[in-house]
């Protein structure tokens, strides 16, 4: 598992580099998957604001997109969307 194979590759201090996926692909934690209905999305960004996992991005047209690599399926976005533009479906990893 370890990426540092020998002592020579180690830093002298336990310093960690900022990286996405520090806990691996957290999208695999999901049991439910939020799905955005782009026809309904008004681009208010509330779901983006509330997302604890920084798994929602704003696309060019101002609407939101969910990054399923990181989304843990908490469904805050589903619950908070003021226009009910986010559905939830049972996750079935392909």
């Amino acid at each position: 598992m370890s990426k540092l194979k020998t002592i020579k590759e180690y830093p002298l201090i336990p310093a960690s580099k900022p990286s996405e996926g520090a806990a691996g692909r957290t999208g695999l934690w999901r049991t439910f998957r939020p799905v955005v209905n782009l026809d309904k999305c008004i681009g208010c960004r509330l779901c983006w604001f509330y997302c604890p996992d920084n798994a929602i991005t704003i696309s060019g047209d101002g609407k939101v997109e969910i990054n399923y690599d990181w989304c843990k399926g908490c469904l805050i976005c589903f619950h908070e969307c003021p226009v009910k533009a986010i559905d939830r479906v049972v996750e079935e990893f392909g």
Partner: peptide
């Protein structure tokens, strides 16, 4: 408004917080 908030993220995705963690939301902002 929420739309004025910068898009740059300094809490990167794929962290270890539980799903729905309130602290992660706060720290991110």
């Amino acid at each position: 408004t929420v739309k004025d908030i910068p898009l740059q993220e300094l809490l990167l995705p794929g962290h270890v917080a539980c799903a729905g963690c309130g602290m992660a939301i706060s720290v991110r902002h």
